[in-house]
Design a protein around this nucleic acid. Sequence first.
DNA 1: GACAAGATTGACT
DNA 2: GTCAATCTTGTCC
Length: 207
Amino acid sequence: MERPGPQDHALAHDSLARLRELDALTAAPLLLGARIERRLPSGEQLVARIVETEAYLGAADAASHAARGPTPRNAVMFGEGGFAYVYFTYGMHHCFNVVCGARGEAGAVLVRAAEPLRGRAAMAHLRKRAPEAPATELASGPGKLCQALAIDRTLNGHDLAKEPLRLRIDWGAEPAGEVASGPRVGIRLARDLPWRFWLRGNPHVSR
DNA sequence: GACAAGATTGACT
DNA sequence: GTCAATCTTGTCC
């Protein structure tokens, strides 16, 4: 492969363009191993590697926010792939999703857990944990991940090819480990669908 | 305008 | 294992 250079940004953008061609169910396992890069207002760069995802579709998925059509909250899910869908829930937590599919079709991949690669001390601070807190406590759940990476609703609809929140996907990479799947967590409807994916044995996976 | 539920987490028995 | 915290959103009146 080419070494990183001026085309780096363009390549990153192209890699996200592929998300517009994939539905969330196809993309969810493929996003395992992808990197989230978050630039804090201070300039510090945080990096984490995705280890757990869940797929949410549109009308065909009763558990999805988009199951009953567009609303102000889920509008981003109906847009084109490669953008962030961030929502607030339980009065205190945010959840970060990667929108998938073409404009008009609803779908997103919930990023449930990630492995901190860079900026662990800053993540611990954002999580209100001691600097020496175990890395497995920092982003091992959707709410924790958003707290550790300072992701909130101001990033809803954000283009993930751009600062300050970027997603880097190496589509050609070998799977980062054995991919396991099972029922999604925390939902009431459609609990039988095995649309949750994780890297088996990875200690940063939730629960 | 009222109200129930929620793609969670952390503390506690 | 159980449970409270906390508030936005969607739905129904």
